[in-house]
Design a protein around this nucleic acid. Structure first.
Lengths: 171, 171
DNA sequence: TATTGTTATACTCTATAACTATA
DNA sequence: TATAGTTATAGAGTATAACAATA
C-alpha cells in the first residue's frame, strides 16, 4: 500500500488544484445565487430534488440521500424538514423496513425543479461550459464520473499521516 | 454573442456537471477535515494563508483578498479577525491609501501553512490526483486556469435571463 | 461622490451527541 | 447489537445594511 507521502504534487498539479478550487467556488456562487433567486432554494435542496427526480420512482431513502449528497444525517433531516414544510417532498416510513424513511417528490417539488432547471442550466452553461471546447467537455464527461466513483470507494479517512516528521521540534 | 438559451446542456454535459458537483463536494469535505484536524483552520483561512504566502511580499489588500477568494468583504473581515486573534496575520493601514488595510502573514501564519501543507497535498493527492493519468493532469492544468480566467472576466451577474424568453416577445 | 473596511445583526447551515424505534 | 432517523444544541460562517473614514 503505497499510500505514502513520496510523491507530492508538482507545481503544475498544485496550480491546477488551486485553479480548480477557484473554479468550483465561482461556479458554486453563481449557481447558488440562481437557485436562490429563481426557486428560493439552496444547493443542498437542489441536490435533493435532482436526486429524487432522477430516480425512476421519485423516491429515496434518507440515508442514501445523505450518503450520495455527502451530508450528515441530521443535516439531511434538517433540509428534509424544510422541504416538507414547503411542500416539496413527503416523508413516509419504508414499507419493507420500518426504520427507514422514504422521501418522495411531490408534484410541487417536481414543478419547482422543472421551473428552476432551465435557468440553472443556463447559468452553468454561461459560467462553465461556454468556455469549454467539445474536447474539453468530452474529457470532463469521461473523467469526472470515473473520478467520483474512485473517490467514493477510497478509504474515507484512514492512514492519516500524523505529520511527515521532517522537523522534529516544530516551533 | 449568443449568450442566449439556444444550446442547453446535453445529457453528457449534465452528467459531467453532476459528477463535478459531487467530486468537488467530496474533495472539499476531505480537505476541510484535514485542515481542521492538522491546523485548526477551515478552507477559507487556508485560502487566505495560501494567497498571502504566494505573494512576494506576503501581503495583500483586504478587498483584493475578498475578490480573489469570492467572499463578501464583511465575511473576510470576520475571517481576518479570527486569524489576527490567532496570530496568523497582522492588519495595518495601507501606506499609499489610508483607506485600505494591508494584511500580512506573520511567522506563525507562515509556519502554520507550512506545517499543514504536506498533509494537505497528501489528501489532495490521495483523494484526487491519485486517480488521474498524466494526461488527465495535463488536461486539467491546461483547462482550469483558463477556465478561471474566463469566469473571472465574465459578467458577474448581468443579463440575467428572466426566463428563457428567446423570442422577441418576452411575455 | 466613490471606495475601503468594519460593525451590528440576523440567518442559514452543519455537525455531534443523545435518544427512540425497528431489525 | 446494529441500523435508521430525529432532536437538541451549539457553533461556524455568510451576507446585508448601516456606518466611519479616506480619496
Amino acid at each position: 500500500m503505497a499510500v505514502t507521502n513520496d510523491t507530492p504534487l508538482d507545481a503544475e498539479e498544485f496550480a491546477a488544484y488551486l485553479a480548480l478550487r477557484e473554479v468550483a467556488s465561482l461556479l458554486e456562487h453563481g449557481v447558488e445565487q440562481q437557485l436562490r433567486e429563481d426557486g428560493g432554494i439552496g444547493g443542498a435542496q437542489f441536490g435533493i430534488l435532482a436526486q429524487l427526480y432522477s430516480s425512476p420512482t421519485g423516491q429515496a431513502r434518507m440515508t442514501d440521500l445523505a450518503d450520495s449528497l455527502v451530508y450528515s444525517r441530521s443535516g439531511l433531516t434538517y433540509q428534509a424538514g424544510q422541504m416538507e414544510k414547503a411542500g416539496l417532498i413527503t416523508r413516509a416510513p419504508g414499507e419493507n423496513d420500518e426504520r427507514s424513511v422514504m422521501v418522495e417528490l411531490t408534484p410541487a417539488g417536481r414543478e419547482l425543479l422543472e421551473r428552476v432547471m432551465p435557468g440553472h442550466l443556463e447559468v452553468v452553461r454561461q459560467l462553465f461550459f461556454q468556455w469549454l471546447s467539445r474536447d474539453d467537455v468530452l474529457g470532463l464527461a469521461d473523467l469526472m464520473p470515473r473520478l467520483r466513483d474512485h473517490m467514493r470507494t477510497a478509504p474515507p479517512r484512514s492512514a492519516k499521516p500524523r505529520r511527515p516528521g521532517p522537523g522534529r521540534s516544530p516551533r
